[in-house]
Design a protein around this nucleic acid. Structure first.
Length: 196
DNA sequence: ACGATGATTGTCT
DNA sequence: GACAATCATCGTC
């Protein structure tokens, strides 16, 4: 909490991304989201790890068609898809036009805004474990199933452009692509992206 | 620090 | 009844 206040008013950079940003190839969106900022009610930080899930990919929840649980995946790009897994929940950004089933799973962020609130919600664990997993970051930001189907452009859960400018990571930032984690199908697709 | 393993709840077949 | 886009813990190096 020392001196992150630059001379440039950081608020001017906190523009939400428009719907066009979310209508593209889902693998490209997953990489473009690296470096963007995810916040909910003033708590959040920079996205550092994502995974792409395309509707024709066996590991994607939409692969077998629409069900009551995954219906949000078929809304228009920019919507939020939240689902529960075991005792945790995970957050995705829906991609593409309405009717498609593409989405990007947010796997990790850097805790930057509302750090005191995050520490409380994460039970006083070491900072390294605050938001370094899909379920952990949802707990840190207070994301619940009630956020499922909401819109990232108008709702409380927001996606903002990266600090460096238009969108995505800064020029020259190194992004590593690798296989996705925790799946048992299509394990060889390098659709996981991480900021180095 | 890293990798394997068990826990546990809702959803779909 | 089986499975899961995970997490926390325990074991070893």
């Amino acid at each position: 909490m020392s001196d992150s206040s630059d001379a440039l008013g950081s608020q001017s950079c906190s523009s939400r991304l428009d719907s066009g940003f979310f209508e593209r190839e889902v693998v490209d969106l997953a990489r473009a989201l690296i470096g963007c900022r995810l916040t909910r009610e003033g708590v959040g930080g920079t996205i550092v790890e994502t995974e792409a899930y395309r509707e024709d990919d066996p590991a994607c929840h939409a692969f077998r068609g629409q069900t009551p649980r995954n219906r949000s995946m078929f809304l228009e790009g920019g919507r939020i898809y939240v689902y529960r897994i075991h005792q945790s929940i995970c957050v995705n950004l829906v991609c593409g036009p309405e009717g498609a089933g593409h989405a990007v799973l947010i796997r990790a962020i850097r805790p930057e805004l509302g750090r005191e609130e995050i520490a409380k919600r994460r039970g006083g664990r070491p900072e390294r474990e605050w938001t370094n997993g899909p379920g952990k970051l949802c707990q840190a930001l207070g994301i619940t199933l009630a956020d499922d189907g909401t819109c990232a452009r108008t709702g409380p859960l927001r996606i903002e452009a990266g600090q460096a400018g238009a969108c995505g990571s800064e020029p020259g930032a190194q992004i590593e692509a690798g296989p996705r984690v925790g799946i048992s199908k299509a394990v060889d697709l390098p659709w996981r992206f991480r900021l180095l």
